[in-house]
Design a protein around this nucleic acid. Structure first.
Length: 643
DNA sequence: AGCACGCCGACT
DNA sequence: GTCGGCGTGCTC
């Protein structure tokens, strides 16, 4: 009889001891019974017989390879998660079997292997490789240089302007991996994972490519897992969770749109897929390419310091791009209307960016100042005229749009801060013949709607696309003649250490949708236009400015960690925070220091009060050391904002 | 996670 | 007295 420490997945518990009749390797995924229910568990180590009786391991369900075990251990250590929590990331796509207990069954079910690092490798034939190489897009001299640079480094940052041809370089890197009988992972923000992305990859690589994101069906997931297992699938284009797929012999990871906040998980463990990829480039011999037209300040600085930055400037055919700045605050100004009118007249297409959903972000009584705040959250409810509702965008509370102020019974209610739906409605009224679509979370609810709108826009069935940040994420809209930007000030004034970075990056990403072939115009309404105009032609100029002006209390100069104290009772949440604060302040010799604390910017969401303590330190290990002395806390390591 | 246990405040 | 909300601890 063999005894093993098992990490039970989906049960908060320390390691438990189970028995097996045959020896098992660490990393084996097994079925175990905990409190009369069946769970997955991971074999951690062999151990001695304990002084209590153990249950038997039920069956063997798979195996975590060395890269996966390394990642799980690292996530548990670095992000202060438990080992089971970390391992659960690798199972997110195969829900634990809720089947009736079949105890003491030792033979693995025929289709049971969910993870395996196979020694054998289903190789591509020489003919297949030749076909891939011949289908590769050709590179211009600049791209060739970039590709050679990337091939010479284990980790590189490809800083390439929109339209400079990053994708072609990625394809060459992927092909290179395949030719060496390795697999490739192409990470991108979820929203960019459209069937068009798949089609583009399949054009070059045939059918060894699969798309992976949160919205694909369970049967499709099963199919992909099978394809990975028999190594027919060699390339995964996926969102951040694709990092946890069992890719055998992974040779390269591309992290496209490296700056994107979507790489950071917002629930526990709060990992950052981009940072984990970088880790793998150093610790697992996997080549990693970070790419962006607007790299994060942190990646830019690190890449410059570490000599792995490659700057790829705009293509030769770069058409003229004209920026027009107007110093007005968020609105559809007369000037902007005239520009749109001209574009429509020329039968060209326009994109209008508005960082707000619905018709308006708030409703206000002008008589008494009553604000229509959500009863469960400390935010204003948004005005949705299409549903005749006031909706909270943080919980899901809705109420009928009122005619009178509930406080003073006045009927002078005023809309504040225009959103996509209202901009679209206003434009429709101004230009009744124009075909207008809205591109935001309210309207693009499924993958199908996303591709439908994008293909309708591509085939010129839509004249004006009004949308939120969703517009900026890596779609190729081909030849947009005009881009209007309304309300960028709300992002630039976001009150966070990265607000300027977010705003200017967004402007570049949105502006990049025009001027690809024909000339394009970018019209920006902002009260910061004097400050902005120096940064519109070259994002690197902004990065240099930001490097000089950002407070050295924040990344990239310091590491951050946010301690969350949430509770249904406001007093309890605050007490918890103060207790932690006191414990922190007693350790005066600490290398990590308190940068701020108090109620969050939105102090209540869905009935929960939210308080926080923000820590910073020179090194991550300084932060870990302090946290260790505080016991069990909810911490966001390397938080991406401080709101 | 989910469930039992036990402590303390409110109420027939 | 008792009911029940909620914080704490346990699972091989």
């Amino acid at each position: 009889m063999f005894f093993y420490h098992i990490a039970p997945l989906g049960v908060r518990s320390p390691l438990l001891t189970y028995t097996a009749r045959t020896p098992l390797l660490p990393g084996t995924l097994v079925g175990i019974e905990v409190r009369k229910k069946i769970y997955d568990g991971v074999v951690i180590t062999q151990t001695q017989a304990p002084d209590f009786t153990c249950k038997d391991i039920l069956d063997v369900r798979g195996y975590f390879g060395s890269v996966q075990r390394f990642l799980a251990r690292f996530i548990a250590y670095y992000y202060r998660a438990s080992l089971p929590e970390s391992y659960k990331l690798f199972l997110a796509f195969t829900p634990a079997p809720a089947s009736i207990p079949k105890p003491y069954k030792h033979t693995p079910a025929p289709n049971a292997l969910r993870f395996c690092e196979l020694p054998l490798c289903a190789r591509l034939s020489v003919a297949q490789k030749q076909q891939i190489v011949s289908a590769l897009p050709s590179l211009n001299p600049q791209q060739e240089k970039a590709y050679a640079f990337i091939e010479s480094k284990p980790l590189s940052l490809l800083f390439g302007d929109t339209g400079s041809g990053k994708t072609e370089i990625y394809f060459h890197c992927i092909a290179q991996a395949l030719c060496r009988d390795k697999a490739a992972l192409f990470l991108m923000p979820e929203i960019a994972l459209t069937p068009q992305t798949l089609a583009r990859l399949q054009n070059v690589f045939g059918d060894c490519v699969a798309l992976w994101h949160s919205k694909i069906t369970p049967s499709k997931k099963k199919q992909i897992l099978q394809g990975l297992h028999n190594q027919q699938i060699k390339i995964i284009a996926g969102a951040r969770s694709a990092l946890f797929l069992p890719l055998a012999r992974l040779g390269v990871i591309i992290v496209d749109e490296e700056h994107d906040d979507a790489y950071k998980s917002m629930s526990n463990p709060r990992y950052n897929a981009r940072d984990l990829a970088i880790l793998l480039s150093r610790q697992a011999g996997i080549k990693v390419v970070l790419g962006s037209a607007t790299p994060s300040l942190t990646s830019y600085k690190r890449a410059k310091d570490g000599d792995y930055l490659f700057r790829l400037k705009g293509g030769f055919y770069r058409a003229q791009k004209e920026f027009i700045l107007e110093s007005t605050f968020a609105q559809l100004s007369y000037n902007l209307q005239q520009h749109i009118k001209a574009v429509l007249k020329q039968q060209k297409q326009a994109i209008i960016f508005v960082p707000t959903r619905a018709n308006f972000k708030a409703l206000l009584c002008l008589e008494c100042g009553y604000g229509f705040v959500c009863p469960f959250c400390s935010v204003n409810m948004s005005v949705h005229l299409s549903r005749d509702m006031l909706c909270c965008h943080y919980c899901d509370y809705k109420e009928v749009l009122p005619n009178l102020c509930p406080e003073c019974k006045g009927n002078n209610l005023s809309n504040k801060r225009i959103g996509t739906a209202q901009v679209a409605a206003d434009l429709q009224e101004l230009y009744p013949q124009a075909r207008i679509s809205i591109f935001d979370r309210d309207h693009i609810t499924t993958a199908k709607k996303l591709t439908d709108v994008l293909s309708a826009f591509k085939s010129r069935e839509i004249d004006i696309l009004v949308g939120t940040q969703m517009l900026s994420k890596g779609h190729d809209y081909h030849n947009v003649a005009f881009v209007g930007v309304v309300g960028i000030d709300y992002i630039l004034q976001g009150g966070d250490f990265r607000s300027l970075e977010r705003g200017v990056s967004l402007l570049h990403q949105i502006a990049g949708r025009t001027g690809r072939k024909d000339n394009g115009r970018v019209f920006i309404q902002s009260l910061q236009s004097e400050w902005l105009k120096g940064f519109l032609d070259d994002y690197e100029v902004f990065l240099q400015w930001e490097l000089m002006h950002r407070s050295t209390a924040y990344p990239p100069f310091k590491r951050l960690a946010m301690i969350h104290c949430d509770h249904r009772s406001q007093a309890k949440a605050q007490e918890n925070m103060l207790a932690i604060l006191q414990a922190l302040q007693q350790r005066s010799e600490s290398a990590a220091t308190i940068l701020g604390y108090g109620a969050n910017a939105i102090e209540r969401i869905a009935g929960k009060w939210r308080f926080h303590i923000l820590l910073h330190a020179q090194k991550h290990s300084d932060i870990l050391r302090v946290l260790e002395s505080l016991g069990d806390l909810e911490v966001d390591i390397d938080c991406i904002d401080t709101l």
